[in-house]
Design a protein around this nucleic acid. Structure first.
Length: 568
RNA sequence: CGGGGUAUAGCGCAGCCUGGUAGCGCAACUGCUUUGGGAGCAGUGGGUCGGGAGUUCGAAUCUCUCUACCCCGACCA
């Protein structure tokens, strides 16, 4: 490809409303352009990268035995009524109506469609196990799309759905998909981690996420420094930090804490550590309010709390008025003693003694509070967020924290959808059995952004070999005027192209500095600089985008040299 | 969904307060010079000032309204 025949529109200035580096670089390199909130056009340059991602995914999915297919992006509403997931997805569903006033959703995912397909197509255990996948445009009406294609509303996703007679067979395919995802991300040259995950709105029993490690990642992931335990912070078990509850040593007493409401204020006012306090959080439950109690220095895990059967999901805090009705005081003075609602305490809190909490009376707290003697709880549960430094839940090592971009998620769905939609097969004995199901997603467009987050420097993108839109860039200096430069560049271009390389030759009439910095921005891995100065001595120059030092290569040997560098 | 902000040429912005029919930089186009690190000079094209309504002799500017986009928040206890 010659740049004058291609569509190359770069920008030297950072776009104003791009916050993260991948978004900035994708705009500057001209890979994407925004059409509307969370909607992006992929230019020919960006699309080349997207296709590279897809090709790797497709190859590995096919190699795993999965079968590619294509489902409609538009789905009838009735299908979603069968599984009752309309509420789960809520406002994320883009609803539309056709001329006959029939209701549709633009698919955010395809469990319903594939299950509908399978219930008609698969009737015998002999057809199992089977794994279908597609690479397709999805739409989720995010509350707040941001970061370019990282969190867009329309996006491209590879989604796979496997079907089984037994849980063992599901386990097998699930592990195969885990291995396949690992191969895919390895081939892309990305630094990633597979972590235990919460299964969210999709539902099901087990799930793992694949995260590309990057400081700009929207998720926090926890991992052990000694074992291979790793989990999304939403899922990471937070163990009790106190192994055994000590006997009470203090007398319970009421202290005045005028205008001291937050943990920080009260602990400072009383000159105690936040670890000696508990926070009593009042939330809406299935049968009226529920109190959730965590240690003063801990964070509530909203995901874990919402999973408790007694608690409404999604989690909703009581408003100030409801708090006063229940406790007779302001939210800043709520405590565990004589609370007129069920009390669920975190595992650490269950073992605390002589602690401080609100007195359920404005501007007062209690000190020296002890369980059993002064207050009761109905249940203990893991409801806090794990923290770096906590013991790893598998008992080996301590937890560390990193930021990750979720690019893949695999789930064991079990029979949740097959039961709801009556997808059954006959087993060996002729009995009807609900299908076991797995689902495996991978965000293709997000992967492009994630790769850039991980692979860039101050001058632009540094594409990993497998993802680059072009492998080799030929950068001739004064191509328009110098005959020897033009001939050398054209000849190399012809030879490389013929040999099957993806080459871009910059034949624009631009100044050298402009051209060189453009290709630093674009991140093409192998760059050959051809100019009169070195050509007069019989050389051309080579540089790799990552290292950037120029090497002189004999003009006659450059083709062989590139062949070795690129290992095509 | 709540709060705040913005909307003027492809991009980034000024002009608005104090109404008089639109400007700067970059980009684009033409010509000449230059040609190994974001060139110089001269010239050219491009905007119903987000949409609608109102006030006025006259509105980018004042008023109302709609829309779009951006940012913050939705974990005080």
């Amino acid at each position: 490809m010659r740049t004058t025949q291609f569509h190359l529109v770069t920008r030297k200035e950072t776009p104003q409303d791009a916050e993260i580096i991948s978004h900035q670089l994708m705009i500057r390199a001209g890979m994407i352009r925004k059409l509307g909130a969370g909607l992006y056009t992929w230019s020919p340059l960006g699309f080349r990268v997207l296709r590279k991602m897809e090709a790797i995914i497709r190859e590995e999915m096919n190699a795993s035995g999965a079968l590619e297919m294509l489902m409609p992006a538009v789905q009838p509403k009735e299908l979603w009524e069968e599984t009752g997931r309309i509420e789960d997805f809520g406002g994320q569903l883009l609803a539309m109506t056709d001329r006959a006033d029939r209701d549709y959703f633009f698919g955010p995912t395809h469990e319903e469609v594939i299950t509908e397909f399978v219930r008609d197509e698969v009737s015998s255990y002999k057809q199992l196990p089977i794994n279908f996948y597609q690479i397709q445009t999805k739409f989720r009406d995010e509350i707040r799309p941001r970061f370019g294609v990282m969190r867009s509303r329309e996006f491209i996703m590879k989604d796979a759905y496997s079907f089984h007679l037994s849980e063992e067979s599901l386990d097998e395919t699930y592990r195969l998909m885990e291995a396949t995802y690992t191969t895919i991300l390895d081939r892309m040259g990305l630094n990633f981690r597979c972590v235990l995950a919460d299964s969210g709105a999709i539902g099901g029993s087990g799930s793992q996420e694949f995260h590309v490690i990057a400081d700009s990642g929207e998720d926090a992931i926890m991992y052990s420094d000694e074992s291979d335990y790793a989990a999304n912070i939403e899922k990471c078990a937070a163990v009790s930090l106190i192994s055994q509850r000590a006997e009470p040593s203090e007398v319970i007493s009421v202290v005045a804490t005028p205008n001291q409401k937050t943990i920080e204020e009260v602990s400072h006012f009383l000159d105690i550590q936040a670890e000696q306090m508990v926070k009593t959080l009042l939330v809406k439950g299935i049968d009226g309010p529920v109190a959730l109690v965590i240690r003063g220095d801990h964070q509530l895990s909203e995901v874990k709390a919402a999973h408790l059967p007694e608690v409404d999901s999604p989690l909703q805090f009581l408003d100030d008025k409801a708090v006063r009705e229940l406790t007779g005081c302001d939210v800043g003075s709520v405590g565990v003693k004589d609370l007129n609602c069920p009390v669920i305490v975190d595992l650490t809190v269950a073992n605390m003694s002589d602690f401080v909490c609100g007195a359920n009376r404005d501007d007062h707290h209690l000190t020296g509070v002890n369980w059993q003697r002064d207050a009761e709880f109905q249940q203990q549960a893991d409801i806090r967020e794990a923290r770096a430094g906590d013991p790893s839940p598998d008992g080996r090592g301590r937890l560390k924290q990193a930021r990750g971009i979720e690019v893949g998620h695999i789930f064991k769905l079990g029979d949740k959808y097959s039961k709801a939609m009556n997808a059954v097969v006959l087993d060996e004995t002729g009995r009807s059995q609900a299908l076991q199901m797995g689902c495996y997603g991978m965000g293709v467009s997000r992967l492009v952004a994630a790769a850039i987050e991980q692979c860039h420097d101050e001058n632009g993108i540094i594409w990993p070999a497998a993802l680059a839109p072009f492998q080799v860039a030929i950068l001739p200096m004064n191509y328009q005027k110098s005959v020897q430069v033009k001939e050398t560049a054209d000849e190399l271009y012809k030879r490389l192209t013929k040999a099957g390389y993806e080459v871009i030759l910059d034949d624009r009439k631009v100044r050298p500095g402009f051209m060189l910095s453009d290709f630093e921005l674009l991140g093409i891995p192998h760059q050959v600089i051809i100019g009169d100065r070195s050509l007069d001595e019989g050389f051309v120059e080579y540089r790799h985008r990552e290292k950037m030092e120029k090497q002189k290569i004999e003009r006659a040997k450059i083709f062989e040299f590139l062949t070795q560098q690129t290992c095509l």
